Computed example of a mutant assay.
Amino acid sequence: MDALELLLNRRSVAKLVEPAPEGEHLENIIKAGLRAPDHGNLTPWRFVLAQGEGRQKLADILQHAAQQRGGDEAAIEKASKAPFRAPLVITVIAKVTPHEKVPPIEQHLSAGCAVQAMQLACIAQGFQGFWRSGPLMFDANVRQALNVHGDDEIVGFLYVGTPATEPMKAAVRDLSQFVEFI
């Protein structure tokens, strides 16, 4: 797939099945994440992969957090099932290094760029990924379980697998609604 075509037509597919990328495909996905913009060469990212039994470990972490938050039965069940929406879940964490010229927000944005780069690498290799967030990524129990401290933040969960459906066509947007010149 042409790079510009990929960028202009990227769409998430939420229905993902086995197989998940592995070997060279998975390495390419991680390497793409490591190419995110990185002011100061701080490498402000950390990736926690959950597949196989790891998905159950992540499910247990999310379920416990939902229970501790006082979630109702539906919220707790949703949290416990979340990691099973794809055969691989990559938790992307902004790993912040104190730096006088690179504030935490810039390092968080860099980690966000890593998520998109990894998603694009999935698509380019015939897989798919969708980026999820939500209140549990800010939860103290989840942060502790995934060793997230201080200014570090979970920037999202990238669900990865083989698309079970074709992506919908990208919406055509009126550029004049988003662009202005000064």
Rank of each mutant, 00 (worst) to 15 (best):
N141H: 15
T162E: 03
G134A: 11
I154R: 04
D151F: 06
A145N: 13
V148N: 08
F138W: 12
Q144H: 11
D152K: 05
Q144D: 10
Q144N: 11
V142R: 06
P163D: 08
V148W: 10
T162Y: 06
V160A: 02
M137F: 12
F157P: 07
E153T: 09
Q144W: 03
A140T: 13
P135D: 14
Y159R: 05
G134P: 06
G161A: 03
H149I: 12
L136Q: 03
V155A: 00
R143Q: 13
L136V: 05
T165R: 08
E153Q: 15
D152P: 04
G156I: 10
R143T: 06
L146T: 11
A145F: 11
N141P: 03
G150L: 09
T162L: 06
F157G: 01
V160Q: 00
P163M: 04
N141T: 14
G156M: 10
D152H: 05
G134C: 11
Q144F: 03
D139I: 08
P163E: 09
Q144G: 04
L136N: 10
D139R: 02
G150K: 12
E153N: 12
L136M: 07
D151G: 00
N141Q: 14
F138Y: 15
A140E: 15
F138A: 13
Q144I: 02
G150P: 09
L136R: 05
M137G: 08
L136P: 06
A164W: 03
A140I: 12
I154F: 07
L146W: 12
M137S: 13
R143F: 03
Q144A: 13
R143P: 03
T162M: 01
L136Y: 03
R143H: 12
G134M: 09
T165F: 09
T165M: 06
D139C: 08
F138S: 13
G161D: 02
G161H: 02
N147P: 09
